[in-house]
Protein backbone atom coordinates (compact mmCIF):
# COMPACT_ATOMS: atom_id res chain seq x y z
CA UNK A 1 0.00 0.00 0.00
CA UNK A 2 1.61 3.25 -1.09
CA UNK A 3 0.65 6.89 -0.91
CA UNK A 4 0.15 6.70 -4.64
CA UNK A 5 -2.81 4.41 -4.30
CA UNK A 6 -4.64 6.78 -1.95
CA UNK A 7 -4.20 9.59 -4.32
CA UNK A 8 -5.74 7.54 -7.04
CA UNK A 9 -8.57 6.86 -4.60
CA UNK A 10 -9.24 10.38 -3.37
CA UNK A 11 -6.97 13.14 -4.54
CA UNK A 12 -5.44 12.29 -7.87
CA UNK A 13 -4.22 15.31 -9.85
CA UNK A 14 -6.33 14.31 -12.85
CA UNK A 15 -9.49 14.47 -10.77
CA UNK A 16 -11.23 17.64 -9.69
CA UNK A 17 -9.42 18.34 -6.42
CA UNK A 18 -12.58 19.94 -5.04
CA UNK A 19 -14.70 16.83 -5.55
CA UNK A 20 -15.22 14.72 -2.41
CA UNK A 21 -15.67 10.97 -2.51
CA UNK A 22 -18.37 9.52 -0.29
CA UNK A 23 -17.37 7.44 2.69
CA UNK A 24 -19.56 5.63 5.17
CA UNK A 25 -19.33 5.93 8.95
CA UNK A 26 -18.32 2.51 10.23
CA UNK A 27 -17.88 3.35 13.88
CA UNK A 28 -18.37 6.32 16.19
CA UNK A 29 -16.37 6.62 19.40
CA UNK A 30 -17.17 9.33 21.92
CA UNK A 31 -13.69 9.96 23.26
CA UNK A 32 -14.53 12.74 25.72
CA UNK A 33 -17.49 15.00 26.44
CA UNK A 34 -16.65 17.15 23.40
CA UNK A 35 -14.42 14.93 21.28
CA UNK A 36 -15.38 12.08 19.01
CA UNK A 37 -13.72 9.71 16.57
CA UNK A 38 -15.20 8.57 13.28
CA UNK A 39 -14.04 5.49 11.42
CA UNK A 40 -14.83 5.75 7.71
CA UNK A 41 -14.70 3.37 4.78
CA UNK A 42 -15.21 4.17 1.09
CA UNK A 43 -18.95 3.94 0.36
CA UNK A 44 -18.42 2.00 -2.84
CA UNK A 45 -15.84 -0.38 -1.39
CA UNK A 46 -12.84 -1.15 -3.53
CA UNK A 47 -10.10 1.37 -3.12
CA UNK A 48 -7.94 1.16 -0.04
CA UNK A 49 -7.18 4.40 1.71
CA UNK A 50 -3.67 5.34 2.59
CA UNK A 51 -1.99 8.39 3.98
CA UNK A 52 1.19 9.51 5.66
CA UNK A 53 1.15 10.30 9.40
CA UNK A 54 0.38 13.99 9.89
CA UNK A 55 -1.74 14.45 6.77
CA UNK A 56 -5.34 15.63 6.81
CA UNK A 57 -8.56 15.26 4.89
CA UNK A 58 -11.32 17.69 4.04
CA UNK A 59 -14.53 16.25 5.45
CA UNK A 60 -17.77 17.37 3.81
CA UNK A 61 -21.17 17.19 5.43
CA UNK A 62 -24.03 17.33 3.00
CA UNK A 63 -25.39 20.86 2.82
CA UNK A 64 -23.47 22.04 5.89
CA UNK A 65 -19.88 22.54 4.82
CA UNK A 66 -16.39 21.20 4.80
CA UNK A 67 -13.61 21.22 7.40
CA UNK A 68 -9.96 20.13 7.46
CA UNK A 69 -9.48 17.31 9.97
CA UNK A 70 -6.23 15.50 10.59
CA UNK A 71 -6.11 11.75 10.15
CA UNK A 72 -5.62 10.03 13.49
CA UNK A 73 -5.68 6.35 12.61
CA UNK A 74 -3.06 3.69 12.06
CA UNK A 75 -1.49 4.19 8.62
CA UNK A 76 -1.01 0.45 8.21
CA UNK A 77 -4.79 -0.15 8.44
CA UNK A 78 -5.45 0.40 4.75
CA UNK A 79 -9.20 -0.06 4.76
CA UNK A 80 -10.29 2.61 7.18
CA UNK A 81 -9.90 6.35 7.72
CA UNK A 82 -9.95 7.52 11.32
CA UNK A 83 -10.68 11.14 12.26
CA UNK A 84 -10.84 12.59 15.76
CA UNK A 85 -12.62 15.92 16.07
CA UNK A 86 -13.85 18.33 18.69
CA UNK A 87 -17.40 19.52 18.26
CA UNK A 88 -16.74 23.25 18.34
CA UNK A 89 -17.93 24.71 15.02
CA UNK A 90 -21.01 24.54 12.81
CA UNK A 91 -19.73 21.62 10.77
CA UNK A 92 -18.09 19.63 13.56
CA UNK A 93 -21.17 19.95 15.79
CA UNK A 94 -23.32 18.39 13.08
CA UNK A 95 -20.57 15.86 12.44
CA UNK A 96 -20.73 14.77 16.07
CA UNK A 97 -24.32 13.66 15.44
CA UNK A 98 -23.36 11.24 12.65
CA UNK A 99 -24.34 7.63 13.18
CA UNK A 100 -23.00 4.34 11.89
CA UNK A 101 -24.02 3.95 8.25
CA UNK A 102 -24.24 7.69 7.50
CA UNK A 103 -22.39 9.15 4.53
CA UNK A 104 -19.70 11.80 4.62
CA UNK A 105 -17.64 13.38 1.83
CA UNK A 106 -13.85 13.05 1.92
CA UNK A 107 -11.12 14.79 -0.08
CA UNK A 108 -7.49 14.09 0.57
CA UNK A 109 -5.13 13.15 2.00
CA UNK A 110 -3.41 16.52 1.90
CA UNK A 111 -0.28 18.09 3.24
CA UNK A 112 3.10 17.15 4.59
CA UNK A 113 3.86 14.35 7.02
CA UNK A 114 5.72 13.80 10.26
CA UNK A 115 9.37 12.88 9.58
CA UNK A 116 9.02 9.22 10.55
CA UNK A 117 11.61 8.18 7.95
CA UNK A 118 14.11 10.92 8.81
CA UNK A 119 13.80 9.94 12.47
CA UNK A 120 14.97 6.37 11.89
CA UNK A 121 17.99 5.66 14.10
CA UNK A 122 17.13 8.51 16.47
CA UNK A 123 15.27 8.88 19.71
CA UNK A 124 11.81 10.29 19.13
CA UNK A 125 9.93 12.60 21.46
CA UNK A 126 6.30 13.24 20.60
CA UNK A 127 4.80 16.19 22.43
CA UNK A 128 1.06 16.75 22.19
CA UNK A 129 -1.24 19.36 23.66
CA UNK A 130 -5.01 18.80 23.77
CA UNK A 131 -6.55 17.64 20.49
CA UNK A 132 -2.99 17.91 19.06
CA UNK A 133 -2.59 14.28 20.05
CA UNK A 134 -4.89 13.25 17.16
CA UNK A 135 -2.56 14.15 14.25
CA UNK A 136 0.41 12.69 16.15
CA UNK A 137 -1.20 9.31 16.79
CA UNK A 138 -0.50 7.95 13.26
CA UNK A 139 3.20 8.80 13.75
CA UNK A 140 3.20 6.91 17.04
CA UNK A 141 1.48 3.94 15.38
CA UNK A 142 4.03 3.98 12.59
CA UNK A 143 6.97 4.15 14.98
CA UNK A 144 5.62 1.38 17.18
CA UNK A 145 5.06 -0.90 14.22
CA UNK A 146 8.68 -0.26 13.16
CA UNK A 147 9.89 -0.08 16.74
CA UNK A 148 13.36 -1.56 16.24
CA UNK A 149 14.29 1.20 13.80
CA UNK A 150 14.15 3.85 16.50
CA UNK A 151 16.00 4.58 19.72
CA UNK A 152 14.06 5.67 22.78
CA UNK A 153 10.49 6.75 22.12
CA UNK A 154 8.73 9.16 24.46
CA UNK A 155 5.20 10.55 24.38
CA UNK A 156 4.53 13.66 26.45
CA UNK A 157 0.89 14.67 26.45
CA UNK A 158 -0.68 17.62 28.18
CA UNK A 159 -4.33 18.47 28.28
CA UNK A 160 -6.87 20.51 30.20
CA UNK A 161 -8.31 18.21 32.86
CA UNK A 162 -8.41 14.45 33.43
CA UNK A 163 -11.78 14.27 31.64
CA UNK A 164 -10.20 15.80 28.53
CA UNK A 165 -7.69 13.01 28.10
CA UNK A 166 -8.00 11.62 24.61
CA UNK A 167 -7.57 7.94 23.71
CA UNK A 168 -7.48 7.07 27.42
CA UNK A 169 -7.58 3.30 26.95
CA UNK A 170 -4.92 3.44 24.25
CA UNK A 171 -2.70 5.49 26.52
CA UNK A 172 -3.15 3.05 29.39
CA UNK A 173 -2.13 0.18 27.11
CA UNK A 174 0.82 2.14 25.76
CA UNK A 175 2.01 2.91 29.27
CA UNK A 176 2.39 -0.77 29.97
CA UNK A 177 4.87 -1.19 27.10
CA UNK A 178 8.49 -1.42 28.07
CA UNK A 179 9.74 0.16 24.84
CA UNK A 180 7.76 3.37 25.17
CA UNK A 181 7.71 6.07 27.81
CA UNK A 182 4.34 7.81 28.21
CA UNK A 183 3.81 10.83 30.45
CA UNK A 184 0.47 12.57 30.72
CA UNK A 185 -0.14 15.82 32.53
CA UNK A 186 -3.19 18.03 32.99
CA UNK A 187 -3.48 21.76 33.61
CA UNK A 188 -5.89 21.33 36.50
CA UNK A 189 -7.33 18.47 38.48
CA UNK A 190 -9.34 17.73 41.58
CA UNK A 191 -7.63 16.00 44.45
CA UNK A 192 -8.81 12.62 43.23
CA UNK A 193 -6.51 12.72 40.18
CA UNK A 194 -3.33 10.84 40.94
CA UNK A 195 -1.42 11.76 37.79
CA UNK A 196 0.72 14.77 36.91
CA UNK A 197 -0.55 18.33 37.12
CA UNK A 198 1.29 21.10 35.29
CA UNK A 199 2.01 22.18 31.77
CA UNK A 200 3.38 19.68 29.28
CA UNK A 201 6.65 21.61 28.98
CA UNK A 202 7.40 20.64 32.60
CA UNK A 203 7.83 17.07 31.39
CA UNK A 204 10.62 17.90 28.95
CA UNK A 205 13.60 18.31 31.31
CA UNK A 206 13.34 14.80 32.73
CA UNK A 207 12.03 12.89 29.71
CA UNK A 208 14.38 10.04 28.85
CA UNK A 209 15.79 10.88 25.42
CA UNK A 210 19.23 11.85 24.19
CA UNK A 211 18.83 15.47 23.07
CA UNK A 212 21.78 15.26 20.69
CA UNK A 213 20.12 12.43 18.82
CA UNK A 214 16.40 13.20 18.99
CA UNK A 215 13.66 14.11 16.56
CA UNK A 216 10.81 16.01 18.20
CA UNK A 217 7.26 16.06 16.78
CA UNK A 218 5.05 18.67 18.37
CA UNK A 219 1.38 19.50 17.94
CA UNK A 220 -0.91 21.62 20.04
CA UNK A 221 -2.01 25.22 20.45
CA UNK A 222 0.58 27.63 19.03
CA UNK A 223 1.51 29.02 22.45
CA UNK A 224 2.09 25.51 23.78
CA UNK A 225 4.30 24.74 20.75
CA UNK A 226 6.35 27.92 21.21
CA UNK A 227 7.04 27.05 24.85
CA UNK A 228 7.73 23.45 23.91
CA UNK A 229 10.35 24.58 21.41
CA UNK A 230 11.98 26.66 24.17
CA UNK A 231 11.97 23.64 26.48
CA UNK A 232 13.48 21.38 23.81
CA UNK A 233 16.07 24.02 22.96
CA UNK A 234 17.01 24.31 26.63
CA UNK A 235 17.37 20.56 26.77
CA UNK A 236 19.78 20.72 23.81
CA UNK A 237 17.63 19.42 20.95
CA UNK A 238 18.76 20.87 17.60
CA UNK A 239 16.16 23.29 16.23
CA UNK A 240 16.28 21.52 12.88
CA UNK A 241 15.17 18.32 14.57
CA UNK A 242 11.95 19.90 15.81
CA UNK A 243 8.78 19.58 13.72
CA UNK A 244 5.48 21.37 14.34
CA UNK A 245 2.02 21.06 12.86
CA UNK A 246 0.18 24.35 12.30
CA UNK A 247 -3.49 25.17 11.93
CA UNK A 248 -4.99 27.91 9.77
CA UNK A 249 -8.33 28.62 8.14
CA UNK A 250 -8.70 26.43 5.07
CA UNK A 251 -11.35 26.37 2.38
CA UNK A 252 -9.74 24.31 -0.36
CA UNK A 253 -6.68 22.46 1.00
CA UNK A 254 -5.02 22.60 -2.41
CA UNK A 255 -3.49 26.08 -2.53
CA UNK A 256 -6.28 27.92 -4.36
CA UNK A 257 -8.28 29.72 -1.68
CA UNK A 258 -5.43 31.63 -0.03
CA UNK A 259 -6.85 31.40 3.48
CA UNK A 260 -4.16 29.30 5.12
CA UNK A 261 -1.21 31.53 4.30
CA UNK A 262 1.42 31.82 7.01
CA UNK A 263 4.00 34.27 5.69
CA UNK A 264 5.13 32.75 2.41
CA UNK A 265 3.83 29.31 3.35
CA UNK A 266 0.55 27.67 2.54
CA UNK A 267 -0.31 25.52 5.54
CA UNK A 268 -2.35 23.22 3.26
CA UNK A 269 0.38 22.31 0.79
CA UNK A 270 3.66 23.39 2.42
CA UNK A 271 2.44 22.06 5.81
CA UNK A 272 0.70 21.33 8.08
CA UNK A 273 3.89 19.69 9.36
CA UNK A 274 6.82 22.09 9.20
CA UNK A 275 10.42 21.88 10.27
CA UNK A 276 10.78 24.54 12.97
CA UNK A 277 13.28 26.46 10.85
CA UNK A 278 10.67 26.96 8.13
CA UNK A 279 8.26 28.78 10.43
CA UNK A 280 10.61 30.24 13.02
CA UNK A 281 10.71 33.72 11.45
CA UNK A 282 6.94 34.11 11.67
CA UNK A 283 5.94 32.05 14.70
CA UNK A 284 6.60 34.76 17.25
CA UNK A 285 5.13 37.58 15.19
CA UNK A 286 1.63 38.73 15.87
CA UNK A 287 -1.28 38.16 13.53
CA UNK A 288 0.77 36.71 10.68
Amino acid sequence: MTTQSVQSAVGAPDLNPMLPQTFRVRKVINDTYDTFTLELTPSHGGAEVSFRPGQFNMLYLYGVGEVPISISGDPSRGNVLVHTTRAVGTVTKVMSKLKVGDLIGVRGPYGTAWPVEEAVGNDVVIIAGGIGLAPLRPALYHILSHRTKYGKVVLLYGTRTPSDILYRKDLEQLRSRFDLEVHVTVDRAMGTWRGNVGVVTNLIPKAPFDPTNTVAMVCGPEIMMRFTVLGLQKRGVALDSIYLSLERNMKCAVGFCGHCQFGPLFVCKDGPVFRYGQVREFLNKREI
Binding site: T185, R188, A189, M190, G191, W193, G195, N196, V197, G198, K206
Partner: peptide, 23 residues
Protein backbone atom coordinates in the same frame (compact mmCIF):
# COMPACT_ATOMS: atom_id res chain seq x y z
CA UNK B 1 8.06 9.64 44.26
CA UNK B 2 5.48 12.28 43.55
CA UNK B 3 4.04 15.15 45.54
CA UNK B 4 0.89 17.17 44.80
CA UNK B 5 0.70 20.84 45.66
CA UNK B 6 -2.93 21.51 46.49
CA UNK B 7 -5.27 24.28 47.42
CA UNK B 8 -8.51 23.48 49.20
CA UNK B 9 -11.79 24.92 48.11
CA UNK B 10 -14.38 24.31 50.85
CA UNK B 11 -17.12 23.42 48.39
CA UNK B 12 -15.23 21.32 45.88
CA UNK B 13 -12.38 19.88 47.92
CA UNK B 14 -8.71 19.92 47.11
CA UNK B 15 -7.60 21.13 43.67
CA UNK B 16 -4.17 20.04 42.50
CA UNK B 17 -2.18 22.98 41.20
CA UNK B 18 0.99 21.16 40.38
CA UNK B 19 2.76 17.89 40.91
CA UNK B 20 6.50 17.45 41.42
CA UNK B 21 8.47 14.26 41.07
CA UNK B 22 11.89 12.66 40.91
CA UNK B 23 14.65 15.25 40.94
Amino acid sequence: GRVAVEIVNPTSGPITIQTVGDG
